[in-house]
Computed example of a mutant assay.
Amino acid sequence: MTVEIKYVVVREGEEKMSFANKKDADAYDKMLDLAEVLGDWLQESPLKLEDDQNEALAMWLAEQRDALSAIIKTGKLPESDASEKAAPASRKKASADAPSADVKPIKAA
């Protein structure tokens, strides 16, 4: 017989996820806390979402916390190979057609 230790994240009496180590369980619990705060914040938005959409968006934002933080700090999308592969063809084409950095726009009079 083997003995396994499991760390279970429980919210409102419901088991959300179980983990083999405490660090991962704590990180998931922290992400759920962030998603809850983001969900409350999104409800204050002028854009009215259905409850399930609000929860899904809040959870996605919490999961993407590092990228969201980088975007807020820099005003740019974080660089990654995955985002370039997933970029729509129209965005790739637009960036290919964009003028190079040494071309300066001229203001019309």
Rank of each mutant, 00 (worst) to 15 (best):
K16W: 06
K92Q: 11
K93H: 01
K104Y: 04
A62G: 14
E50T: 14
P46V: 06
K73T: 12
L47W: 01
D66Y: 04
M1A: 15
A108W: 05
I5C: 05
P99H: 02
A109R: 10
K6Q: 07
K93M: 07
L77V: 02
A87Q: 15
K48Q: 13
L34M: 09
A89I: 15
A98E: 13
A67N: 12
A108S: 08
K107F: 05
Y7V: 04
S100A: 15
A98P: 07
S95E: 09
S95Q: 09
A25E: 04
A87S: 14
D52W: 03
S80N: 03
E12G: 07
A109I: 07
E4D: 09
R11I: 15
A101Q: 09
L57H: 02
T2F: 06
E55M: 09
K30G: 03
T2A: 10
P99I: 03
R65L: 00
M31I: 04
D26Y: 05
L77E: 09
A27L: 13
L34P: 01
K16Y: 02
E79A: 14
L49T: 08
D33K: 11
K85D: 04
D40R: 13
I72A: 14
A87W: 02
E4I: 15
A27R: 14
N54H: 01
G75A: 09
G39R: 15
I72H: 02
S100H: 12
E50P: 09
A101R: 13
Q43W: 00
V8R: 13
V10N: 14
D81V: 02
S83R: 06
K30T: 07
D81Q: 09
A20C: 00
L38R: 06
N21A: 01
K76T: 05
S83Q: 07
S83K: 06
D51Q: 11
E50N: 09
K23S: 07
K92T: 11
M31F: 01
A109E: 08
G13I: 06
